[in-house]
Each structure stands twice: as C-alpha cells, then as structure tokens.
C-alpha cells in the first residue's frame, strides 16, 4: 500500500483572534503554523507534543470542528475547507474523532443505544430496527454486551465509556479516525485494552489513525510515523524508528529525557546516585 495517501495536509495555518478588552489591544494567536504531512492508508501517524503545541487544534481542523485559516486538507481525495463549502454528509463519513476524556464526551442524559444511533439517524435514512441491529453489532465489536444498549453513560467505567466513544466513531464506517489522547485519562490496565482494541479495529476495518498523544511510550508502541509539534510548528517528522532512535531537534531530545523510565537499569542508576 505504498503511496496510497489518504490524508494530505499542506501548509496548514490556524489563527485565533483574541478580542481586546478595555485596556488590552486585540491580538492574534497562531496555534498551528504551516503544518504539512501525509498519512498512508491503514497506517498510524502519532502527533506528539505538550499542552499548547497546537495538536488539539490540528485535530479539530482535521475533524471539521473548526475551519482552517489557510492551507489545504485533503481526506481520501476530498478537499476539506468548511469555511467555504460547509460540511456534506460525504465529508462527515470520511473522518471521525475520539476524545480524550470519556467522562465528558458522552451525553449524560442519553442512553448508549441512542449515542451510537445518533450518527446514523442524522446522516442516513436507515429504519430504526436496522439502526439498532447495527448498534448492537458495534457494541459487540468493541467488547461490550448487548444489555449495555439501554444504559446511561454514568453506569460505565472510564474504559467502557471509551469503548462506547470508539463505537460511536466507527458507526459511520469512516476511513480516518482522529484519536485525541484516547488513553491518557485511563488506567494503565485499561489503556492496554483500548490500545489492543484500536489495533484490532485498524486491522479489521482498514482504518487510518491520527493518534494525538503526549505519552511517548504509547506512541512508540502504536505509531508508524511520528510528528513532534512544538508551539504550533512541526519540529520533527519521520518514521517511528527514525524519531525514537535518532531525534534531531533539541525539543524532541528534551522530551525523551523527561519521560520517566520504568526499567530496572534506570532505577538501579538512580538508587546508586542517591546513595552516593
């Protein structure tokens, strides 16, 4: 599947206006500054960076929540510029998002079945029985039970909620899934389950992932390509091995150095240093 590029981003900018107050002048903040990258079909691009680096802004543009200020986004051959063309059903079916916080991303007053059926209800003319069957099928696919269909989100654990959020995202059979820190709010053991689930789904449905994360160990595990962002700019972009084995930019190096190491060797070294 060489050169089968599903997501093409060129020179993307996003500028926010900060409205001035009585004593302050209005100013502008550029959250994403000229980002370009390609993602191949069925692969995973990890976007790494710390808070304020523009990675979530990027996710919002890719998923058509916000419009770009300038630059091109092309998903599966479809050019995306919602400020000019608006959003069509076709565009909506291409890309979906999974949010970081599974406690905030599900409507507390909506039963799970309705959560899953909402995209179908709004975008297709499917009869309700069929919608329900599809929702049940999807529940099973993400490792939940049919009896969960009628329950409210607060009856689920964080990991289960994230499964529901993933099920909702793939209801429309999207090509591209943007995962905005999907496991950083979860416990370690649950994180492993969700990462496994994502890997399974990718294989089964041929999904392409843009995986946004600040956790390098997760990125190392899941990514094919890695893009490091720093203050809205891409400072490092390459295959996983290239970036992890031979980081070029100072910031990437700092990031690696700061990541806690949980291997026995590092602990020994630390304890020795402390005893000295």
């Amino acid at each position: 599947m060489e050169d089968d590029v599903i997501l093409k981003v060129r020179d993307l900018y996003r500028t926010y206006d900060i409205s001035g107050g009585l004593l302050r002048k209005a100013s502008q903040l550029t959250a994403v500054k000229g980002v370009s990258f390609d993602v191949e079909r069925g692969s995973t691009l990890a976007v790494v960076g710390e808070s304020g680096c523009g990675k979530s802004t990027l996710a919002r543009m890719l998923t058509m929540i916000d419009a770009q200020s300038s630059g091109e986004i092309e998903i599966d051959g479809l050019s995306i510029d919602i400020s000019k063309t608006g959003i069509s059903r076709e565009m909506r079916q291409k890309v979906q998002i999974v949010f970081q916080n599974p406690y905030g991303s599900l409507n507390p007053r909506q039963k799970i079945g309705h959560v899953l059926e909402e995209p179908l209800l709004l975008n297709t003319d499917m009869p309700s029985a069929e919608r329900r069957d599809l929702a049940l099928e999807m529940l099973q696919k993400v490792g939940l039970q049919p009896e969960h269909y009628g329950r409210y989100p607060h009856m689920f654990s964080g990991g289960q909620r994230q499964r529901i959020a993933i099920a909702r995202a793939i209801m429309m059979q999207p090509k591209l899934l943007v995962l905005d820190e999907p496991v950083s709010a979860l416990d370690l053991s649950v994180q492993a389950q969700i990462l496994n689930l994502l890997a399974d789904l990718q294989e089964e449905m041929g999904l392409t992932y843009v995986f946004i994360s600040h956790d390098l160990s997760v990125v190392r595990y899941i990514a094919d390509k890695v893009m490091v962002m720093y203050f809205g700019e891409v400072v490092e972009y390459g295959t996983q091995d290239e970036v992890f084995d031979n980081p070029q930019h100072d910031y990437t190096k700092t990031l690696f150095a700061a990541t806690p190491k949980a291997d026995v060797e590092s602990i020994r070294k630390r304890l020795a240093a402390k005893a000295a």
Partner: peptide, 16 residues
C-alpha cells in the same frame, strides 16, 4: 463540552 462537539460532528443541527 465534548459530547456537544461529538453530536455536532455526528451532524446534529442547531435545533437538535
């Protein structure tokens, strides 16, 4: 909140 954004992405209109 995220769930509102999620509904928007799902295609919910203003009234909904």
């Amino acid at each position: 909140r995220d769930y509102v954004v999620a509904a928007r992405i799902a295609g919910a209109g203003h009234i909904r």
